[in-house]
Amino acid sequence: MTLLDFARGPAIHASLIILAAGIVLRLVGVLALTRGADLSRPRDAFGNFKGYRTVFSRAWPSSEFNAATVYQTVMAYVFHIATLLVVIGIVPHIEFITSLTGASWPGLPNFIGVALGTIALVSLLALIVRRLSKPAIYNSTVGDYITWIIVALPLLTGLMAFAHVGFRYETMLALHILSAALLFAYMPFSKLMHAFWFIFSRAQSGLAYAHKGVRI
């Protein structure tokens, strides 16, 4: 079995199973805990419902916080959008998703894919540089750095494979798939779960504050 066979076969297979099981395990294991009750009378009868707006409104920090947050926010957005577009826009990725789900859509030309991948990687670098240069602000843990590496690897190996830099293409492709497999398997057990938590976390706070008539 070549490295590529291993990557495309057992590795990605196992990682996807871990991903699916892990995400659901962690979501259910947390969300099925007891629910606390706030018995106090809400400020206005249907007001609590408005709390759900926080899920969306928190997408951008309020201008009060601009000075301290704009760099992080912009870079994080650039990273997330570029990465998302790379993940769903590049033809090999679409083929991969199609084979899993059956869904298919037109891809982006390669030069755009490469540009987006590069932008994603650069924004990720911009984020780590700031994290390293402002330790007091971030209170980074080992986990933060491990996560950064695991997220950066697929981008790096993907770009290298495309550009035929480094090892032979099939080896780079295998490494790229393996790094994605690592990301999949790591995701449910790391802070990357924020991809799901953000909805619940924001909604909860939104509801708790809306109960008191406060828009957050």
């Binding site: 076969g9 990605i12 090999p92 083929e95 991969f96 084979s99």
Partner: peptide
């Protein structure tokens, strides 16, 4: 099946 599809069931 394209290269990207791999064989993961």
């Amino acid at each position: 099946e394209s290269v990207a599809k791999g064989n993961f069931g």
